[in-house]
Every structure is written in structure tokens, then in C-alpha cells.
Design a protein around this nucleic acid. Structure first.
Lengths: 161, 161
DNA sequence: GCAAGTATCTCGCTGAACGAGAGAATAACG
DNA sequence: CGTTATTCTCTCGTTCAGCGAGATACTTGC
């Protein structure tokens, strides 16, 4: 086994892990009558709610790379399912605030709850020092991907004539 | 910072990383006139080709959770783009083998090449022992997700009446 | 050689997402 | 203030990926 074998295996592991997580999400979604987009939206909304941020259809669509028409459809769907509620912002009545309903939190709990518990349990079998290494590692990888994404974006801009 | 803070941050890091990778893939795909599904199919086909395995439309569709009609559409698309080629299996003429064209490999190189290089470079800044820890960590996480996925599947089966 | 089995493809349809633009409210400026 | 510009959201018509059902082509077993 050469010197580069080990890192290469790590790359594949990383990719495999993202694929697994993706599939897990997709299966959970279809099992609950949601589309992958709906689940991603829900995750975004729950994260924002936990952080105390106000989310509008505009922001949500931007985060998910949907245009306004697609966003309206998405919000309609989530509202019809009773997962969120629309409410006009009293300050700026052009805006609509998206409020997550109780049911959405429960659903999120069902999705994450179990998995997060298992992940934490598995992490419990590592030394604190090892977890610190894992964290540094993940942070380094995340930064690389984020940087690559920006370069990709820059390339897209340039290629647009 | 309590004892559970650190692992929880790791969970969020992990999720954030998968989101970033996903977005990176989606952006690369649309930049090349592909759909996310097309890119996933291409990755699967390239992996299989490297492993020397024969992929048929049936296998591909199964891997991507598409039904036969959707799979035909996908293969049509990839063939029209000149990324793969259909070829009837001489042994069993019911089957069709999917062969990746040169162009697909180049595209895959364009997608992965740069990113993998950057990831490897970032890994180079870690000690061998640290990389071993990262690997054990990722393997543990992957296993948890895979297990959770099977449970989810089992639940889906049961819930199906 | 005929029935059953397997692999792929065709047809018609649903619905998510797109582009364009309308509608409604606020901000900015004279 | 009132008129114009701006910002946010939603509507309309369209496109196209993926679905269910079933047709077609080939193989295998009896």
C-alpha cells in the first residue's frame, strides 16, 4: 500500500458517507409524502427557527436555489401538509413570514432524533482528543469544498459570456 | 462548554459538509447541462467501470431508485449527450450493457479531479496517525447511517400494511 | 416448441420547477 | 405628499423528469 492509498480511501469514505446520508433523507422523505426539496426546506426552516431567524419565501428560495414560482409551489405544499404557516409581517407588509408548526418539529425530531442519538452514541466510543482531531479534519474538508464551490461559481460567471 | 457540546458540533459539521458537497455537485451538474440524477448515474457508472463491473439499465435504475421508464429516459439522456453507449450483450441478448465514453471520464475528471486534489492536499497537512483517527471516525459514522437506513427501510416495509 | 420468466423499452400522465410578468406594499425623491 | 423606483410575493403557461401500466424481445425449463 503506497502513501497515497490511505488519503484516497478517506476521500471515498467521505463521498460514500454523503451518499448514505442523502439516501437516508430521500427515503425518509418519500416515506412521509415529502419530496427531497421539501425535506431540505424543512431542515432549513428548523435550523433558522432554532437560531431565532425570520425566514421569508424569498430567503428560502434563495437558500434552495429555486426561483420565485418554484418557491411559491414549495411553500404551498408545506402549508397544505400543515407543516408551516404563512403570516404577513406587520412591519413590512410586503413580506411573508414562514412559521414552522408543531408538527414540523415532531417530524424533524423523527428524522434527526434517532439518527443523531446513534451518531452521538458512536462518538462516545472515541477519546476526546480523537474527537478533536475528527473535528479539525471535518473543518478542513468543509473549507476545501466551500472554496471549490466558490471557484466553480466564479467559473460559471465567467463562462456566461 | 458542556461535554455534549463538542459531539453535537461534529454532527452539524458532518451535515454541513454533506450539504456543501451536494451543492457542489448540483452546481457542477447544471453548469454542464446535466441533472443531479445524471451526475449520480455518471458517478455510479464510473465507479463500476473502474471496478470492472458490467452495468445494465436495470442495475443502474435500481442503484438510483428509478423505475424502468425513468431509467430509460436517463440512459437516453446520457446517450444523447455522448457520455455513454448502449450495447447489447452477446451472451444474453435481452441485456444491454452501458459503456462509458471517453468524454464521460473527462467530465468526471473535471468534477472530481480538482476537488480530490484539493482534498488530498488538505489531508497532507495532517499526521498519519491523525488521518487514521479520521478514518476510524468516518467509518463509524458511515456504519451508523447505513444501519439507520436499514431500520428505516424495515419500518417502511412494515408500514406498507 | 410452448409456457414462464427476465430485461428493456413505449405510452400517457402527474407534478416540480422554470421564465416572464402581474400585483401589492414600501421607500426615496423632488 | 404624490409620483416613481424598488422590493417581495404570487399567477400563468410551459417544460421535462419520473411514475404506473403494459408491450416487446429474448432466454430458459419442461
Amino acid at each position: 500500500m503506497s502513501e497515497v492509498e490511505e488519503p484516497m480511501r478517506l476521500v471515498h469514505l467521505l463521498r460514500g458517507l454523503t451518499v448514505e446520508l442523502d439516501l437516508f433523507g430521500a427515503e425518509f422523505a418519500s416515506r412521509n409524502g415529502l419530496h427531497p426539496t421539501d425535506l431540505r426546506a424543512l431542515i432549513h426552516l428548523l435550523d433558522a427557527a432554532r437560531a431565532g431567524e425570520v425566514v421569508t419565501p424569498g430567503r428560502l428560495g434563495e437558500a434552495l436555489h429555486l426561483n420565485s414560482a418554484g418557491t411559491t409551489g414549495l411553500v404551498d405544499r408545506l402549508e397544505r401538509l400543515g407543516l408551516i404557516r404563512r403570516e404577513r409581517d406587520p412591519q413590512d407588509r410586503r413580506r411573508v413570514r414562514l412559521l414552522v408548526e408543531e408538527r414540523a418539529m415532531e417530524l424533524g425530531q423523527g428524522f434527526f432524533g434517532g439518527l443523531i442519538g446513534d451518531l452521538l452514541a458512536a462518538m462516545g466510543r472515541f477519546e476526546p482528543g480523537e474527537l478533536a482531531v475528527a473535528r479539525r479534519f471535518l473543518e478542513a474538508m468543509a473549507e476545501v469544498v466551500a472554496t471549490a464551490r466558490q471557484q466553480e461559481r466564479a467559473g460559471a460567471e465567467a463562462g456566461k459570456k
